[in-house]
Design a binder for these strands. Structure first.
Length: 416
RNA sequence: GGAUCUUUGGCAGAGUUGGUCGAAUGCACCGGUCUUGAAAACCGGCGAGGGUCAUACCUCCCAGGGUUCGAAUCCCUGAGGGUCCA
C-alpha cells in the first residue's frame, strides 16, 4: 500500500515516480479525490457522532436526577438515523478508496533504470566465467532424462502439465541442495523457520499478491485458503499486526517451502523442462528491518545468494531490474541469473527485493522507534530456487557422454 | 464432530448488576533525581489509528452482526486458544 498522505502531500512527485511503472495518472487522480471525499465523509460522521455521544452522556445524568427524558430521546432518535446514513457513506468511500489504493504498486526507487522488460535490465557484474565446452552442451531436460533424474511425463500423469517427478540422484540432489542452502543461509545469520504452505487472504494481502494477482494462485475450494506462491508470504506475515521493539530488529530468516503458481500469464513460455513449474522448491530469505539498515541487509542477501552459486561453482551475473520488470511490491529488485550453457544464456535463479514499507504498511508491521511507532522495511529473496539450481548443475557439470559431475560443495550432503 | 470455558494496551493481568472505562495494577520502555559510572530506590511519562498548528473530537477491548439513548460489559454468528467427551 502506498502512503496516501504522502500522495496527497506530494501528488506531482509521487505520480511522476509511479508513472515510470506504468501507473495511469488518472487512477492516481481518482485516488486523491476519493481520499478527499473520505475525509469529508469522516468529518460529517464524526460531528454527528460527537453530538450523539454528548446526548447519551446527558441521558445518564437526567436519569440519575429523575428528569423527564422524552424530549431528549426524541432528539437522539432523530440524530441516530442521520448517523446511520453518514456511516454508510463513509464506509462506501472507504471501500472505494481501498479498492483503488490496493491496486497501486510500490514506488520505484530513483535509481531503478527505466525500461520495458527484462531486456532493459542493467547488468551490475558477472561472477565466474562460463567454461568452454569441447562439445555442444545439452539442455537440461535431455540430460535429466538421459540420467533418469527427472520424469516429466509421470508428473503430468499425476497432476497436469508443468509438474514433474524426480528420481534417484535427481531427488537426492534436490534434498542436498535444500539442506546446503539452508545451512549456508543460517551461517550468514538467517534463522531457519518452517511455515505453513497454506495461508489466508489477509496474509496474501499483506505481501501484495492479493487482491491483484488472484488468478495466479491456487485456492482451496471449501475454505478461504491459498497455496503459497513463495515462502515470502508466510514468513513476512509472521509479524503482521505487530509492533516490534527496535532491539528485535532485524529479523533475518530463511525458510524452505514448496511454492505453487498457476503461471497464468506464462502460457507457451518454458513449456519444456523444469524452469517453470506449477510446484517447485525454493529456499527463501526474508528480513524485517529497521529502515535505516534495510539497504545494508539487502546487500547481504544478494551477496549470500551469489555466494551460494559461487560455492556451487556456477557462473552467474547480477542485474538490476528496470521499472518494467519490477514486481508489484518492490521498490527495487536485483536478480541473479545463472549461466545455462545448454540454453546458451543467463536465466533468473534468484530475485531479491526491498519492498521498503510497502508490505509493512499493508501488513501493519511496525516497530517502536524510541517514542513513535514506525513501519519496518521488509525484504525478500530466493536463496535459491532449487529446481533451477539443479538445472544449472546439470548443464554446467555435464560431460560429453551426458553424465553429470557433482559440485564439491554438495558431496558431503550426498554422503560422498 | 459434541459440551463447556476463554480472547482486553509491547507483555502479564483487573474490569461482565450496561453510563465519568480507552480501560486498574505489575513488568517492560522513555525522561529525571541520586551515583565517579551502573544497579537499586524514588519522581514523572507511557495503548493504537485518524484528526488538529496545538487542543477539541472520532474510531478501536478477536472478527462480523444485533439489542439500547448508551456495550469491553447483554444476545447471535464466525475465527483462534484451553478443558472435558466422542
Amino acid at each position: 500500500m502506498i502512503d496516501l498522505k504522502l500522495l496527497q502531500k506530494d501528488f506531482e512527485g509521487i505520480s511522476k515516480k509511479l508513472e515510470r511503472k506504468g501507473v495511469d495518472a488518472k487512477l492516481l487522480e481518482k485516488v486523491k479525490i476519493k481520499f478527499e471525499e473520505l475525509k469529508v465523509a469522516k468529518a460529517a460522521f464524526e460531528t454527528l457522532q460527537a453530538a450523539q455521544n454528548a446526548m447519551s452522556k446527558e441521558f445518564g445524568v437526567y436519569k440519575r436526577e429523575g428528569k423527564d427524558i422524552s424530549k431528549l430521546k426524541a432528539k437522539v432518535d432523530e440524530n441516530k438515523i442521520r448517523i446511520a446514513d453518514a456511516l454508510e457513506i463513509q464506509r462506501l468511500r472507504q471501500e472505494e478508496l481501498e479498492t483503488l489504493a490496493m491496486a497501486i504498486p510500490n514506488i520505484p526507487d530513483d535509481n531503478v533504470p527505466d525500461g520495458e522488460d527484462e531486456n532493459d535490465n542493467v547488468e551490475l557484474k558477472k561472477v565466474l566465467t562460463p567454461k568452454e565446452f569441447s562439445f555442444t552442451p545439452k539442455e537440461h531436460w535431455e540430460l535429466a532424462e538421459l540420467n533418469g533424474w527427472i520424469d516429466f511425463e509421470r508428473g503430468v500423469k499425476l497432476a497436469t502439465s508443468r509438474f514433474s517427478v524426480s528420481f534417484g540422484m535427481g531427488a537426492r540432489l534436490e534434498r542436498a541442495l535444500i539442506n546446503f542452502m539452508l545451512d549456508f543461509n543460517r551461517q550468514r545469520g538467517f534463522e531457519e523457520v518452517s511455515v505453513p504452505a497454506l495461508v489466508n487472504r489477509k496474509a496474501l494481502e499483506g505481501t501484495g499478491q492479493l487482491p491483484k494477482f488472484e488468478e495466479d494462485l491456487y485456492k482451496m475450494q471449501d475454505q478461504e485458503l491459498f497455496l503459497i506462491p513463495t515462502a515470502e508470504v508466510p514468513v513476512t506475515n509472521l509479524y503482521q499486526d505487530e509492533i516490534l521493539t527496535a532491539e528485535a530488529l532485524p529479523k533475518k530468516m530463511t525458510a524452505y517451502t514448496s511454492c505453487f503458481r498457476k503461471e497464468a500469464g506464462a502460457a507457451g513460455r518454458d513449456t519444456r523442462g523444469m524452469i517453470r513449474q506449477h510446484q517447485f522448491h525454493k529456499v527463501e530469505l526474508v528480513a524485517i528491518a529497521n529502515p535505516q539498515e534495510s539497504e545494508k541487509i539487502f546487500d547481504e542477501m544478494v551477496q549470500t545468494a551469489s555466494d551460494i552459486l559461487t560455492a556451487l561453482e556456477l557462473p552467474h551475473r547480477i542485474v538490476n531490474l528496470c521499472t518494467g520488470d519490477l514486481g508489484f511490491s518492490a521498490a527495487h529488485t536485483t536478480d541473479i541469473e545463472v549461466w545455462l550453457p545448454g540454453q546458451d544464456k543467463y536465466r533468473e535463479i534468484s530475485s531479491i527485493s526491498n519492498t521498503r514499507d510497502f508490505q509493512a504498511r499493508r501488513a501493519k508491521i511496525r516497530f517502536k522507534n524510541s517514542k513513535k511507532n514506525e513501519f519496518v522495511h521488509t525484504l525478500n529473496g530466493s536463496s535459491l530456487a532449487v529446481g533451477r539450481t539443479l538445472v544449472a548443475i546439470m548443464e554446467n557439470f555435464q560431460n560429453e557422454d551426458g553424465s553429470i559431475d557433482i559440485p564439491e560443495a554438495l558431496k558431503p550432503y550426498l554422503g560422498m
